[in-house]
Amino acid sequence: MKKYLALLLALAMMLTLLTACGDDSSSEDGTFTPSDTITWYCTSSPGGGSDIFSRKITDIITVNDWANGQTFVVDNKTDGSGEVGRLTVATTKAGDQADHTLLTFNSGDLMPMCQNTDNRVENFTPIAIMAVDKQLLFKGEDTPYATFEDVLAAVESGTAVTVGGSKGDDIATYEALMAELGFSETQMPYITYDGTGDAITALLGGHVDLLISKPAAASEYVEAGMIEAILALSNERYTGNLADAPTLSEVADGKYENVEVPVWRGVVGPGDMSDEAAAYWSEVLRQVSESEAWQTEYLETNMLISNYMDLASTQEYMAQYQADYLASIGKDK
């Protein structure tokens, strides 16, 4: 009797599965087409960098009708510093819902997630990386050091040189720089500000000696001659008004290696998202990254480097980034 019941249940389950697949246009020919509203999670508040990124992408998709006429709802899940939103997406169950859920996921999200929770990239389906950014060190009018070599000399002679920056990914770059230079956090203390804007204010007011910032946020002030780049934290020099800043290997007679910690902006789905859906979204995001609107209205305005990665490369890249990061904070096992 029990056996029959189990069989019956299994049958019923298969039936529901079949009907579910019938609703979802994904199964028959192995492709996926959105059939419902897409929820796009963003773990920072409206108006922030991640929010603009999410809304720009969804705008471009909607305008060009690349999602089968379905609507996107950007949901700003800011609870628990974003961890609640990330956990929600990671645990979304397979099926229609998982295929219609996307999350903006940046290097600045990955780091606190790995540091403070047990959630990992493996719980998501990495879909695309859209852009990367790097940082530079800047000096202000009140900074007593003319070049980065002067800074090195000052630190070695026992003067503390303060560095200001935002609480996001700037810290990881600062730590990489400290590791390369062999300085401790008391020799070159880092002052965390809520955002790069606040850190720039502090540099302009002469409250910190140096500023770590991405080029876009600092550009206007460089233009106005209020701050000046003294070190490019990348493997090659920047162009334009940042071209004068040397990379680390160029200073101190090549004593140090270059420091470059790429800051990326990407998109992931729930771990249970179907392969068809992941392939579909990856393709849509490729179209976005090649669109005119994306190039001029997003990348150029924010001085970002276009760096679209397809499914396979994104998965490999994010996994490697996480492994490197876990190793750097001693959480690799």
């Binding site: 628990g80 540091q115 810290i171």
Partner: peptide, 21 residues
């Protein structure tokens, strides 16, 4: 309660993911 703004680590959240923010 929440994220320590300077070090970026959670404090007094008693293991609760919501209190982290």
């Amino acid at each position: 309660i929440g994220m320590d703004t300077l070090s970026g680590s959670p404090r007094f959240n008693f293991g609760n993911i919501y209190l982290m923010g």
